[in-house]
Design a protein around this nucleic acid. Structure first.
Lengths: 147, 147
DNA sequence: TTCAGTTGTAACCATCACAGTTTCATCTGT
DNA sequence: ACAGATGAAACTGTGATGGTTACAACTGAA
């Protein structure tokens, strides 16, 4: 299964805010146009980012503001905000293995540690990248484009 | 989004084959009982494992045989067999960012490398664990249980 | 104080993946 | 031939996703 596009959309949103906030009013309509989707989709994601405490959104007037330095917002923070999973377990374990069976009653003990290690590997890599990296990377790409 | 339970079920299947093949005929009915699901679910997963070249399944008589040494079958192999994703991309990118927008036309260039690094981190960790590890671990658990 | 612009949210809809189930054809060793 | 097993088709229910319309609520400015 794939991780939902809400994640890449959220990163796209942050990048647009960084890039355009001086020049334009960055509204859900503006973002929807850049991302090429519906403004309501954007607002739903903004709500999730807001609930996670990553941004504030101005009602009426519009406008998005990160609540902390961009170097303190990692991909992991964004992922957890928009794609949170029940119990934080990446792997969906089959629910009721047979306790009468020696394998059935031990399969959790056998697998849980390894599955967690895999999930940790992914999440730790996610923690390495920040919104600041995106801002810097985009500035570089735009400089190259402009030259 | 969670990775489907087919993955843990497949690992459960391999463990049952290892553990019980001497003692019982390991059929889809037998496995369905240990895993506590429907035999047809098991057969669908067996078909995927077979198509990936990891096992052979005997028709008529029943019986499952891995095609290579258990130390050569990794979690990654099993994951790819039962949970394959379109294009092998873990992250679902929003499809059509606006090419008129400087961010829209550069967002792929900005993100693709980082997303791939995250996916690689997960998959490389998956490659560290083999079905042999499961067999050994289960033997140990059963020894402790029996003592 | 009205008004235009914006966010927040509810109520839908279509599509898809997942897990499960029934049913039956097909294969294989005895 | 038969019992026991796999293979596969067809169908169901459930939930997530992505999208859309509609409207209430808020805000700053005219």
């Amino acid at each position: 299964m794939q991780i939902s596009s809400r994640f890449t959309i959220a990163l796209h949103i942050f990048t647009c805010v960084d890039t355009f906030q001086e020049e334009y009013k960055v509204t859900s309509d503006f973002l929807a146009s850049s991302i090429n989707t519906n403004p309501v989709i954007i607002r739903k994601i903004l709500t999730q980012l807001k609930q996670a405490g990553l941004i504030t959104v101005a009602r009426g007037t519009g406008g998005i503001t990160p609540t902390r330095p961009l170097s303190d917002i990692t991909f992991y923070d964004v992922y957890k905000a928009v794609d949170s999973i029940e119990d934080d377990t990446l792997f969906h374990f089959h629910e009721n293995p047979n306790p009468q069976c020696p394998v059935g009653r031990n399969v959790h003990g056998l697998l849980d540690g390894k599955l967690k290690a895999i999930q940790d590997a992914m999440e730790n890599e996610m923690r390495k990248y920040t919104i600041e990296d995106l801002r810097d990377g985009m500035q570089e790409l735009l400089t190259v484009e402009g030259s």
